[in-house]
Design a protein around this nucleic acid. Sequence first.
DNA 1: ATAAAAATCGACATAGTGTATAGTTTTGGG
DNA 2: CCCAAAACTATACACTATGTCGATTTTTAT
Lengths: 204, 204
Amino acid sequence: MPGHHSARSRRPTERKGDVRERAILDTCEALLAQKGYDAMTVGDIAQGAGITRGALYFYFGSKQEVVTALVARTVEHLWERSRVTAQADEPRQAITAAMRRTVELWNEHGLVMRTAIDLSLTVPEIGELWNHTADLFITAITTVLERAGVQPGSEPDQASAMARALCWMIERTFYHASQESRETLQEASATCEHIWLTTAGLTS
Amino acid sequence: MPGHHSARSRRPTERKGDVRERAILDTCEALLAQKGYDAMTVGDIAQGAGITRGALYFYFGSKQEVVTALVARTVEHLWERSRVTAQADEPRQAITAAMRRTVELWNEHGLVMRTAIDLSLTVPEIGELWNHTADLFITAITTVLERAGVQPGSEPDQASAMARALCWMIERTFYHASQESRETLQEASATCEHIWLTTAGLTS
DNA sequence: ATAAAAATCGACATAGTGTATAGTTTTGGG
DNA sequence: CCCAAAACTATACACTATGTCGATTTTTAT
């Protein structure tokens, strides 16, 4: 494996390869939207990026590696966003803020997020990335629940376990809704928020 | 297309082909557990069922058709089970009963159910089967919620929308938990049940 | 300007899918 | 018991996609 992203990522000047690599990922994302993962071939990606198949294999070892890199890029963006966002102390506000942010993320990156979820089983590396992301959310939700008075702990009716279930609810609901329209996503968000609030004991 | 399941399904005597067809689906299920969908080849399935590749194509037109038939078989079993089960009138009992039944279904058919979910995107027919199944559950949950006093309707905080979110929560939670162990699944079930009860306004 | 590193190309080998065909065995209803 | 349909076998083929390789060209740093 010759030149690879992480190894080349912090160079003084930008290599030509860095541009190509980005072009490959961008093309991959576009094709994912057009034809989906299965229908998209390595040749398609290469062509879209303006190079031959052979050249693409200089950058990535396989189709899966390309998509993994794309997911990694997106997911890093999610982490960034989560880290930066201010965490409200008041549970009710925290929940509303979190849901609004989640809607934004799905609106911007829904396609790649759905792809990541779909490939979590088949591509272990993507599975790990997505699991880690989910864990971040679960931890955040747990904190909010505890602050709202839910008993801490991992028993079925305590904060940790409930946060996990809520996380999966949001993931799946958004997964489906983001395929429809922005309005659907917005409504789905409201529903999830309501359930989260109720679960936290903050009956509105 | 020579002999096909649905066309041959209700014959007086059982043809030999019916047995083989079942053998193919059984092998498919076993291989799915061993190596997963992608790694499993048509040749593998044929070999496992004791026939040649050519013979398999006598029964099914493609690998996807085989898996679709397997999903259809399983899903029909789910519908059967749902229809037969008595529906309790009292919401609290209905919820407990539903969750117990769901645990049983995932314990028995978790593998195929997970496969169905994974392939819902790529194989439209499987997607339809699973969607229909989900709709059945959503309807059932809606009924229970309404009976528990949740306002009917499809606005974000009304029964229909909330039932959908709860359904996805259960699906995803069980999807993950059923990969772990029976105990994990049991605990996950308890958590979902608790959230469902809370959402229905039946604080325990 | 030049040599090493990076990037690219095109040919090749491989594996899996689905089709087709020609012939063989099994089976079940009359 | 017999014969037509059903259920195969064996084999070959066309096709598509993947991934590898060595040769060659282009960049980049000095």
